[in-house]
Design a protein around this nucleic acid. Sequence first.
DNA 1: TATGAATGAGCTTTCATTCAT
DNA 2: TATGAATGAAAGCTCATTCAT
Lengths: 215, 215, 215, 215
Amino acid sequence: MPRAPAPPPEEKLRDADRSQAVILAAARDEFAESGLGGARMDRIAERAGLNKRLIYYYFEDKEKLFQAVLEQTYLHIREEERKLNLLALAPADAVRRLIEFTWQYYLDHPEFLTLLNSANLHRARHLEGSDRVREMNSPLIATLGEILERGRKDGSFRGGIDPVQLYVSIAGLSYFYLSNSHTLSAIFGRDLLAPKARSERLSHMVELVLGYVLR
Amino acid sequence: MPRAPAPPPEEKLRDADRSQAVILAAARDEFAESGLGGARMDRIAERAGLNKRLIYYYFEDKEKLFQAVLEQTYLHIREEERKLNLLALAPADAVRRLIEFTWQYYLDHPEFLTLLNSANLHRARHLEGSDRVREMNSPLIATLGEILERGRKDGSFRGGIDPVQLYVSIAGLSYFYLSNSHTLSAIFGRDLLAPKARSERLSHMVELVLGYVLR
Amino acid sequence: MPRAPAPPPEEKLRDADRSQAVILAAARDEFAESGLGGARMDRIAERAGLNKRLIYYYFEDKEKLFQAVLEQTYLHIREEERKLNLLALAPADAVRRLIEFTWQYYLDHPEFLTLLNSANLHRARHLEGSDRVREMNSPLIATLGEILERGRKDGSFRGGIDPVQLYVSIAGLSYFYLSNSHTLSAIFGRDLLAPKARSERLSHMVELVLGYVLR
Amino acid sequence: MPRAPAPPPEEKLRDADRSQAVILAAARDEFAESGLGGARMDRIAERAGLNKRLIYYYFEDKEKLFQAVLEQTYLHIREEERKLNLLALAPADAVRRLIEFTWQYYLDHPEFLTLLNSANLHRARHLEGSDRVREMNSPLIATLGEILERGRKDGSFRGGIDPVQLYVSIAGLSYFYLSNSHTLSAIFGRDLLAPKARSERLSHMVELVLGYVLR
DNA sequence: TATGAATGAGCTTTCATTCAT
DNA sequence: TATGAATGAAAGCTCATTCAT
């Protein structure tokens, strides 16, 4: 037979994994650029350099693929957050660090914002029943709760702060600014992504949040 | 919007104006529910109770229709904000009032959030070159600037606060919570839209912002 | 009543005629540019500066309008031919004159060519049953027959020439060259509409036809 | 044509090639019957017995499909002309043979006429930049030039005849008669496609052209 | 595991035509 | 005579998905 000898099984397996990873990355980019409704399976295949049929082979359909992308996306940011090792810092430093990280992560991963928007446009139906996602996210809240508790105990933080509320606020302050930066820049006639504007935003957010949590 | 709304000569709108208004309302709902990519011209026509062809007659194509919806949407919230008459209040009350209004408006008009998301997914290309939108939005920032200035002068507010930053923060705190409420509820396993959760959120936002602006 | 007094009846009538004429001219241009299938009633109305509904009022539908354009077109060329007063010329001069006229008329009225093409694409169903068209065209053949007969009698022309065949040949020699000039120019890599090319073509045609009819 | 026709590895065309060929044939018929504007993609698919989507898969859009049909059409007539092997005949016989062939080809392939008409209605924009078409057509002119040259040298033909002019005349004499046969039949009240009329036309054309080229 | 060929349903848009005045 | 508003049908084209290998 004219075909080259098949690669050893481990390598074949790796190819399969690699294909899935390549598809996921391509899908993430496409969904991020065009939203769920605007994304095209054809383009995802093209981006991945793989046959369209293969996407269906691995991910069943477009919705499931989007869900896989979402899960992977959450997994990534939560892993990065874990690496911050916030509990090793003084409470105020930990809060500041979290704000800085969130801001920088959103800046570095604009796809995160659009993917979340898409997920929410569709009422998070892609997350329903995904226990994995909840498990992924609870450690962050637990950590933030611990930080707030420590701050309260050492007298630096005010009491009664809900870690979920605080996390949502920290995320929202960066998220809205960046997610809507095009609209806001057009509306206010001012480039919100210019370097100076960025650093001013970060300062503002840190002052705002610390001004609140510090007693 | 292709035609300036002429004042109706009689007590009833002319059919043409009425049709355009009906189409705009239907389009707003459809775009809000499904996003730009997911919206269907068929469904917009059906919602409007009018022939699909008429939409093209008045609005040229889907993109232009979306743009018209966006402009009308901004127009509405800015008008409502103007009615608040914030400059008649004491600075701290004005800020609190703006937070409360923003929160309540987003709650009452969930379509505002999704429309903005869609606009941003498409990098605000629907607003580019729309001078009208900038003109609509600048008075709000001017008002907020005046409030901050008054507060600083009477000694109640800290100085150096950029009204654009503050506005973005106020909006973002409500926006993220509500826009992502489905995702967040799923993630944190807690219904963020329950009445109690809502009022807690509002308190949190007011405390956060006032804790920052008040000297 | 707030309306200006109606214009006197003759002027009104003239307006009606004028509108019809304007529509016909607009339709002729549109059909000539885009063919029957590609012509748009909207564009015809726009070209005419009149309401689309009026076209239907006067011409019933697109097909009938095309038919009216065709008839008017034939009427025009046959009238021009009649003005040549060919019977006042010597036979050979008359034939030469007819060739020159045909060539120049097609050059001046490119719409004539495309209208004919459209009519033929649709198998002349727009002319069927149009007695007017036959009546219009028979005088030309009669005239040409008379010229051939005179030439034969005075010994300058060969005998046995069918005037219909000759007319078709004269028309075809100009028609194909001009009607297909774009295609032929592309094919032969040579601009067939350049001034020199034109005069060469006319010489060629005259030589070809006179070389045949002259004994 | 999007793909060069690969020689089939087995005796049967591969499905892809066969599908493309079937689509081309169906498109040729539909365009010939209805023109470019009047042709319907649905009907082409139906004629081909294939899914409409497949047409777009292979030919991108209607315009490109028309272009592919045009190229194939030229290819065919030029191939048939080449098979005539005109250079093996005496000059006068060669000219007569070309006239006869052209006449018969147009009779046998009425679609050739309407396709050309459509192409010219659209100003040959489908041929622009198609080097292939020019390459296809130049050999014919070269051959005709050689025939004229031989005739001149052996004293039978007059000199100074431009092969392009002669070719255009030969084509035009048949083309106009057949392309406009419906219109002309209606106009002159005489069936130009009856057997007797046909043979008279052929005689007329041969006499006309030979009467010119022969010294 | 991987692919090119093929499809049905449905999309946005267009069109000739008619309604109401 | 003249018009702006409105429409049903159908057009070109696209999409997620499946077939056959």
